[in-house]
Design a protein around this nucleic acid. Structure first.
Lengths: 146, 146
DNA sequence: CGAGTGAGTTCAATGATTGGACTTTTAGTT
DNA sequence: AACTAAAAGTCCAATCATTGAACTCACTCG
């Protein structure tokens, strides 16, 4: 593939894609949000070749999105856990979930987000923090800083 | 690369990644949000090989995220525009922007979102539509629908 | 002892990506 | 009229990542 590096672009989206811009990586992160922690569980869930999984997990650890932690000795076993940085990806997960729900041809949303304390469904919307206006009702532009 | 297809997974995130799961595609979409429409402008902006750009644009058109429209004859020239489905990706863009702002080592955010009608900065936050509570303050779980 | 599991590594074959050269059509310049 | 340049591609050989299968190693269980 000879992947081009994007890290040099002065753009936060490019920086994000430098870490996540590959089809498997975000699926691994998704599974991690769903509670998967072990190599073989990721592999079975995604049906991903072992070598590819190894390289993706290494890269996630490298980028401090996941952490490889030993959870038993004899035999040595490790689990892969989201770091704080990794948990920060919830917004990305949610956005992709919503877009897929809306635009893919899956019949009904396969997953619903739930508020654990009330048990009610969550319907995430992006709003501006100050005005509490949904972004969908704003004319959003952008400014390049210098 | 022999890319595995993800379209068969019963998961909206996998469906989304089936369309966007490659490093270039989302950068093209980003540029489209920033107003780029023409082949050569995408190419210069991203420094992407022409053949790769052709294949990515074709795929985006194929997936109905962008539309190829002729904007002049003699010589024939086309522009690539986001469709409604493509504009629906704003949430994904915003999430990646925020994550990159927070976690990459760029000094200050290179891009700020602006409300075009007031000129003020927008600070996007995910809230639950009903309760208007930020997701960051909720214990978010999920339910698999059958 | 033999089979089984988790977590990898190694390998050959496949196939996508890359950078460069080339093409086509037209507009502008000398 | 000939030259140059630009936009939007196509074509190609070389490179490199991905794939699937087979293999390893360290244990556990029956």
């Amino acid at each position: 593939m000879k992947r081009t590096s994007l890290g040099h672009m002065n753009c936060s989206i490019a920086q994000t894609l430098e870490v996540l811009g590959d089809p498997w990586t975000l699926l691994i992160v998704r599974d991690a949000f769903f509670g998967v922690t072990r190599f073989e569980d990721f592999r079975r869930s995604l049906d991903i070749p072992r070598a590819t999984l190894t390289s993706r997990l290494d890269s996630l650890v490298e980028h401090d999105v996941m952490e490889r932690r030993q959870y038993q000795q004899r035999p040595e076993r490790h689990q892969y856990l989201l770091t704080e940085k990794g948990r920060g990806l919830r917004g990305v997960m949610v956005s992709m979930l919503l877009w897929g729900d809306k635009w893919s041809d899956l019949a009904e949303p396969p997953v619903t987000l739930i508020d654990a304390s009330t048990g009610g469904e969550i319907e995430p919307v992006y709003v501006d923090r100050r005005s509490a206006t949904p972004l969908s009702e704003l004319k959003v532009t952008h400014r390049f800083n210098t």
